[in-house]
Every structure is written in C-alpha cells, then in structure tokens.
C-alpha cells in the first residue's frame, strides 16, 4: 500500500457502486468521521422508485448531512450527496450540479463513468474515487480517467465484493492506487 500517494488536499470523494454495494455503503458512510472537509458524492445504481428517499435512509445513520441532489445544488464540503435515480449527474466549474436526462450509458442512468469524468475535470488531482461491487462495467473507464488526471483511485477488493464484475473490469484496464476491503477503505478515508 502506497499511503503517501494520496494528495493531502482531497476536495471530493466520489463513490460509484452497483449491485451489492448498498450494504457496503451502509458500512462505510456511517463510519466516516463527521468533520470531513471534502465533498462526498455517491453514484449508486438503483431502481427508479421514489417511494423511499435515499437521503433519509442514510441520513438516519450518520451525523453528516445527507442530500439527494437536485439540479443546480451546490456541492458543499462536509456533506454527503447522492445522485438522484434516473438522472446523470455532472459537476460545473462553480461546483454546482447539473442533472441530465439523456440516453443511458453502460445501460445505466445515473452512469458512474459520467460523474467520475466530470468530477475529475473539475477537481483534477484533488479527486479521490472508490469503485465498489457491481454486475456491469460502468465506472471502470471513469476511474481510469481520474487516475490519468492524477486523482487517487481505489477499487474494492474483488474477493470481498459481493459481485466482483465491476471491480474486475476496472482492474483489467489499469492499475489503481489501492485495492482495499471496506474496512481499509474507511480507515483510509478517515486518515485524510
């Protein structure tokens, strides 16, 4: 593990996950210390079913404010944001959110690739990205893009991931800074 590789001034933590990552997020997010000074943005594939609010689900489990993004919301350090179901999420230079209801990418909307690239374009080397469990290949290319733009990348250990396809797809195309289990991911986030 090359801990010294992490840029000390991480400004955004973007997490992408699909099938099997909901439970991992339930482990990770509540354990993030409450006084973080960066933005946490989660892109999670899920059914377009607005009966349960994802912000409420996670908000009850952490003292960090949790929001589901609306169009033109500002991303404020110290908060956790979720991409809303059925919209792609892009980030503007002024760190507000632009939603996009265009074609699915990698059979997904929100697509992790789109948000990963957008985060990297805005936050450059101050981006830390985590790719979790999932059954498709969304996120792999976005993670590689972040890595090429000198951001820091973490792939969930495929041996631990409930569905290892997504982590493995990433590992096929580039070498991330870290391959970690969720406990180590928490430790790393809290050491920032």
């Amino acid at each position: 593990m090359e801990k010294n590789k992490i840029n000390p001034k991480i400004e955004i933590l973007v997490i992408g996950g699909s099938a099997g990552s909901f439970e991992v997020l339930l482990q990770i997010l509540p354990k993030i210390k409450f006084d973080i000074d960066f933005v946490v943005l989660v892109v999670l594939h899920r059914k377009h079913n607005s009966n349960t609010s994802i912000a409420d689900l996670f908000g009850n489990k952490t003292s960090i404010p949790v929001y589901e993004c609306e169009d033109k919301d500002s991303l404020v350090p110290g908060n956790i944001y979720f991409a809303p179901a059925d919209y792609h999420l892009l980030i503007e230079k002024d760190r507000t959110v632009s939603l996009d209801y265009s074609e699915k990418e990698n059979y997904s909307r929100p697509a992790i690739d789109i948000t990963f690239k957008s985060a990297s374009d805005v936050f450059k080397e101050k981006t830390l990205a985590v790719l979790l469990s999932g059954a498709n290949r969304d996120g792999a290319n976005g993670l590689k893009y972040i890595s090429q733009n000198y951001g820091t990348t973490i792939v969930q250990d495929p041996n631990e991931a409930e569905i290892s396809t997504m982590p493995n797809e990433a590992l096929k195309i580039f070498e991330p800074n870290y391959i970690l289990g969720f406990k180590e991911i928490i430790k790393l986030i809290n050491s920032l």
Binding site: L90, E92, D100, I114, S118
Partner: peptide, 8 residues
C-alpha cells in the same frame, strides 16, 4: 449548463 453541453 456548461458541463452538460460540453459533454453533448
């Protein structure tokens, strides 16, 4: 929105 139109 710049980010969206640039992507398009």
């Amino acid at each position: 929105s710049k980010a969206s139109i640039k992507r398009r």
